[in-house]
Design a protein around this nucleic acid. Structure first.
Lengths: 343, 343
DNA sequence: TGTATTGATTGAAACGTTGTAAATGAACAA
DNA sequence: TTGTTCATTTACAACGTTTCAATCAATACA
């Protein structure tokens, strides 16, 4: 493998000059530059990023740190979309993207967490947390305390070098509820889970605001399954239908689900009960997962801009690293109501 | 940030000794080891992987190289599952995983392709190709010629340091067809696309074999849409139904789709035509994408073991790097017929 | 002709490790 | 006492860059 010395020898110059050529510094004179470039091409030379990293004390890499006990996390559509955005921007700025899965699945020590930073593998990280609002608080605290640069998704954070990138969950749920109201729906239920994710709480709050403004009563339905499965959504829907058929009040004419998976479970139950979607009951989901367009009828849903969130996070971190920290620490990206046929 | 020198000073030994402790070499005497470990803990020292990489001429990282013009490729369920498997095994062996998206979307030069290898960023790569069988052949040739270590997914390859990891596409399609035959279906159609992916050709061939063995005629239906959309599947299905209703022979009583997305499109058309699934027409997909379980009725499909493929690819590469190249170059992982309700 | 002034190039010292060969020191035998 | 082992430890030279001060050549000026 050719080194900068080989190139230097081939071109009859010193390594310093080669370095200057590589970095496009305007000091070298055109004739020399030409000779060096030819030598580089001839030897198929690529500067060692490892040596560069060592010398310049920076890795030009950002990490994607996912704290999710599920080993198949990249298959989660949200994470995957974020990853796509990160990758897009990182490539554009000639940064590498390191997938960083903390070892084990137990409680993570600050030491393990900081390892990729401390060992010079990454200059910054994008952090995605799966789980309740507080379960990973200590992780954020540790990162903050260490003074490393990071951006956290779908979660509020304050700290010196901490950015927060979120979707407009509250707005999205508000808009979806308003759409249902405009369509004449009045008995709108919100389908939640016992598992408290900060993002979902915001969705619930958007729904509440819209209902309050319309002078209607909120009707919140909690999936008993703690892990956001469609089976959980089905059970919750089933319970609701059973209860309202038995004791009233009249069954809902619309369901706003905390996310698409729950929505799909609910739709399944509605169809089985012979209720037409959306004629009898409208259903709106949240997230716009890939399958939303494939269910029958295609699911109306609030799109979470996960791809854009990934892009934004990468942009913020890279800008910060290059000496242009953004003034805003908290970035909220707009959600969008994708109207298909279910509601 | 503490270096090995700081630790050495703190413990009153030389850097060499610290290095020996870090690597668990049995030469250092217990008392010294103890002192060094305390110093490491006290200074919160992490060895610089960059310096290690430079010194040992290896990065302990493997790259995931996806040649897909679509910038949102990580959102493709197949790539995501593979990534999950890679990440799992890489972490287990203390390897890093570098997401490697080639710059631009035009034709890729060998130089660009090899950059991460040559610059010492990765020791090996897993290559996923989207597209027809030949469109990326030059890429594989370039990698082979450069003599770098890599594993390619869902594609045959020969070469010194090239592994090939595939799902049992032919077997899977054969098994699915047999299941349909066992259920009494006789007029089974295969739903293909004009876009030729090697994996899909194998599926087609499995279907053909089963039909031939049953003494039945193959009936292949080509989606006119070149990019595997469900709309393409719908159009193809529509065309088939129109034709058989018009001129016979009798319409199919089962459809085996080249993948799940096509299957969903076909199901949509069948339902619209008032045909019951699976009573009138059974539908079986291929891949077992996440949404397969969410469509209505839940899709019977052949699961492509993408997660396992990712794991296997990582295992092969890491073993090879550690001096244990596998004797087998070509690894075929079993597919599994996941029977849900559509067929 | 000698001296600044500029422009282009280079030498040498890092950056933080690790492997090798050599050094140290203790224990022991002659 | 003097070698001879053996178990520990260490000095030193890489690994491939970049940076900064220093050099050198050529031109401009007095």
């Amino acid at each position: 493998m050719a080194t900068i010395w080989d190139v230097a020898r081939e071109a009859g110059v010193s390594p310093s000059t080669v370095s200057n050529v590589i970095h496009g510094r305007p000091v070298v004179k055109p004739a020399t530059r030409q000779r060096v470039l030819e030598a580089i091409a001839k030897l198929d030379y690529h500067p060692s990023r490892v040596a560069q990293g060592l010398r310049q004390q920076t890795s030009r890499a950002i990490g994607f740190l996912v704290l999710d006990p599920n080993p198949r996390w990249p298959a989660d559509p949200l994470h995957a979309e974020v990853l796509a955005g990160l990758s897009e921007i990182a490539t554009e700025h000639d940064y590498s993207l390191l997938l960083d899965r903390p070892p084990g699945n137990g409680q993570l020590t600050a030491r393990e967490l900081l390892q990729p930073f401390r060992s010079g593998q990454i200059d910054a990280a994008v952090v995605a947390l799966a789980g309740t609002s507080d379960s990973h608080q200590h992780v954020l605290d540790a990162l903050n305390q260490a003074g490393v640069l990071f951006a956290v998704l779908e979660r509020e954070i304050e700290g010196e070098c901490a950015y927060s990138v979120m979707g407009a969950n509250e707005d999205g749920a508000y808009a979806a509820t308003q759409k249902l109201l405009r369509d004449g729906r009045r008995r709108i239920a919100f389908l939640d889970s016992t598992q408290m994710w900060p993002a979902i709480e915001l969705r619930l709050s958007g729904y509440r605001r819209a209902m309050r403004e319309a002078g209607l009563e909120a009707n919140i339905l909690i999936s008993p399954s703690p892990d956001w499965t469609s089976a959980g959504g089905a059970t919750a829907m089933l319970n609701l239908l059973a209860r309202c058929e038995r004791e009233g009040p009249p069954c809902p004419d619309a369901v706003l689900a905390g996310n698409d998976v729950l929505a799909v479970g609910a739709m399944h139950v509605l169809r089985e009960r012979g209720l037409r979607i959306p004629a009898d009951v409208a259903v709106i989901g949240f997230d716009d997962f890939e399958f939303a367009r494939y269910v029958d009828p295609p699911l109306t849903t609030v799109r979470l801009p996960a791809y854009e969130m990934g892009k934004r996070a990468a942009e913020l971190l890279i800008a910060h690293l290059e000496g242009h920290p953004a003034s805003q620490r908290r970035h909220v990206l707009p959600t969008e109501l994708v109207v298909r046929q279910s509601g």
